[in-house]
């Protein structure tokens, strides 16, 4: 090996190292914080100044699981625009295997957003969040007011990520 080719190889190795090291250092741990609806209401002011997108999901909800990576990707795209994505896991808190599965899923997806676990009986949570089923996405404006509520409760008005994005863009333009 010539000095020149050794130099090129060394540079490539260093570049690869530079590419990975900051990412590992910058990645916060994946967390899943138990939270009641009341505690969520108390927590909203902590996001003041940001638009907050809440993705309601659970491992038992197949379309939620399929949609989750797309929401994470959207979170990355809007990170620098004053938008915070939050996940609210609607698992039965007493189903410990399911909760463990939710933690595993979040880790596998490198979900470093704020992840919350509904910490009250599931139906109580559905009721207090005004949900009948998931997936559902709620958007709060910069003052913490619930501005858009996307659900699948109407067979003739379903939503997908494009609707979340449209609602977000509209809020950002206000």
């Amino acid at each position: 090996m010539t000095y020149r080719s050794f130099g090129v190889l060394l540079a490539l190795v260093l570049l690869a190292g530079c590419h990975q090291a900051p990412r590992e250092q910058a990645s916060p741990p994946v967390t899943l914080v138990p939270l009641t609806h009341e505690q969520w209401q108390e927590r909203i002011p902590a996001y003041a100044g940001n638009i907050v997108v809440v993705d309601f999901w659970a491992t038992w909800c197949t379309p939620c699981v399929e949609r989750f990576p797309k929401m994470l990707a959207m979170s990355e795209r809007y990170r620098d625009r004053g938008v915070r994505f939050v996940s609210m896991c609607m698992e039965d808190r007493d189903d410990h295997a399911a909760v463990a599965g939710a933690r595993r899923f979040l880790s596998e997806k490198h979900a470093t957003i704020d992840n919350f676990l509904l910490d009250e009986p599931l139906l109580d949570g559905f009721k207090s969040f005004n949900l009948l089923s998931i997936p559902a996405v709620y958007l709060y404006d910069r003052t913490g007011a619930l501005t858009a509520r996307l659900t699948a409760d109407d067979p003739n008005h379903q939503f997908d990520e494009s609707d979340v994005q449209s609602a977000l863009e509209a809020m950002l333009e206000r």
């Binding site: 909800c61 379309p63 949900l131 009948l132 089923s133 998931i134 997936p135 699948a152 067979p155």
Partner: peptide, 10 residues
């Protein structure tokens, strides 16, 4: 009727 969402085509 809380439960799963029916997945209608848009």
């Amino acid at each position: 009727a809380p439960g799963c969402t029916v997945e209608y085509e848009r």
